[in-house]
Amino acid sequence: MKITVNGKQRTVDVEPDTPLLWVLRDELAMRGTKFGCGAGLCGACTVHMDGKAMRACVLPVSAVGDAEIRTIEGLSEDGSHPLQQAWADHNVPQCGYCQSGQIMSAAALLAVNAMPSDEEIDTAMAGNICRCGTYPRIRAAIRQAAEAEQS
């Protein structure tokens, strides 16, 4: 089976029902995408499929087809995406485990809504749980990244 991840075509030999999450982690050794719930409930495994935020833990690899998958490893070459920089400026992460998924959800939001309102941020990010409670800083970082892109 062939899938395209971060611009590269990869061949994997797995059962078609294998969730993309485990293909990324166990087959392709891309472990920035995290396992949190296995049921699409927490967002730790969020990746982009053709630019849209998807939960890789409930996405069978057979459903990927020709779509372009982007993971946290492919968001920027060197951590320089405006969201990654804003995350650093606000010292957002605590344990850090959910943050790949948070950043990927935020990036998908900004791609379609360059200047989201607080309400829109809450709605778009409600699928991503942070048990450490970094939400106030996530909001602030998204606002900063949005403003940085505008100017």
Binding site: R31, G32, I72, E73, G79, W87, A88, P93, G96, Q99
Partner: peptide
Amino acid sequence: DLADMTTG
């Protein structure tokens, strides 16, 4: 660990 946490 900040930089690593934002890049996975």
